[in-house]
């Protein structure tokens, strides 16, 4: 096992992009967001829910670096915690939908036949639902909140990951080394674990990164319309929504969380693009 992994890493995309400065910047930004997501409760300068009604809608100052919101709560603290809850939703959705997509893709692409036909039709049905619309339906059944949002978005993205990974598996099946493993009578489960899976890691990494980005967009959208993460817990989406009311007097309240969302989403899309380019240098860019 260790051998296979090492070989695939040595031949894999990382050495080539490790030297790209733009990729380094993107990784650094991503790392910053991860640190904030993990350490936000320690990093916050103020209690994010403490209201100071005398100091509402203040601009940036020494004690409140990003000013205060309509309840006099410290914006910076809320922003850091907002990044945390959005990142948690994004990461959970990315992991669940990649795991689900991997399972479906492997079973579908490797077994083919009837199993593949049935799974592929179910995936077709899943793809017929725009993610946001599917989320509306699921949240109406599950109730609003961040758990429902994670479930809804995960189910929404699984068909995409399943489709991508299935075609990767189908491509791999035709490779000589898989066929020779077959011919020599290696057990299918062993072929999948030792030969197919390691070669899927690149595709899986790209797909997980992309879904992470789209899940952040999804969380922002759902929380913005009040169905996702519920106040007073801040998330980037519900902060944009609550800042909207005071957009003209205090534009920072909406601009800051939106910017924070846009930067991390863009970073993830960039990383995903770079990983894909490096894994498949022949594609036109």
């Amino acid at each position: 096992m260790a051998d296979v992994v090492r070989v695939s890493v040595r031949r894999g995309p990382l050495p080539r992009i490790r030297t790209d400065p733009a990729f380094a910047i993107a990784l650094f930004l991503f790392a910053c967001y991860v640190v904030v997501a993990v350490a936000a409760p320690v990093l916050v300068p103020h209690d994010p829910n403490a209201q100071q009604l005398r100091d509402i809608l203040r601009g940036p100052s020494g004690s409140h670096l990003l000013g205060t919101d309509e309840y006099g709560r410290d914006m910076l603290s809320r922003l850091l915690l907002g990044v945390r809850s959005s990142m948690v939703v994004g990461a959970v959705v990315a992991l669940i939908s990649s795991a689900g997509g991997l399972l479906l893709g492997l079973v579908s692409g490797y077994m083919r036949g009837v199993v593949d036909f049935v799974i592929s039709r179910i995936v077709d049905v899943g793809l017929a639902f725009p993610t946001l619309v599917l989320s509306l339906a699921l949240i109406s059944a599950l109730g609003v909140g961040s758990t429902s949002t994670m479930i809804a978005l995960s189910l929404g993205f699984i068909p995409f990951s399943a489709r991508v990974l299935r075609s990767a598996v189908l491509g791999l099946r035709q490779e000589g080394f898989i066929e020779s493993a077959h011919v020599t009578g290696v057990h299918p489960a062993r072929i999948v674990v030792r030969h197919v899976l390691p070669n899927l890691l690149g595709t899986l990494a790209v797909q997980t990164t992309m879904v992470f980005a789209y899940a952040l967009l999804g969380e922002a959208g759902l929380s913005f319309i009040g169905l996702g993460v519920q106040p007073p817990t801040p998330s980037l989406g519900n902060m944009i929504a609550s800042g909207q009311v005071h957009a003209l007097e205090a534009p920072g309240l909406t601009v800051a969380p939106g910017l924070a969302a846009a930067v991390i989403i863009m970073t993830l899309l960039f990383i995903g693009d770079a990983l894909r380019d490096a894994a498949d240098p022949l594609t036109v860019r």
């Binding site: 922002a220 913005f224 989406g237 944009i240 003209l248 909406t254 846009a262 989403i265 863009m266």
Partner: peptide, 21 residues
């Protein structure tokens, strides 16, 4: 292009309101 995909449409809508109200 990356920015275009990354910027949530509803947030861009708010920015447009701020700019063109």
């Amino acid at each position: 292009v990356l920015a275009g995909i990354a910027i949530p449409s509803f947030w861009l809508a708010l920015l447009l309101i701020l700019a063109f109200h």
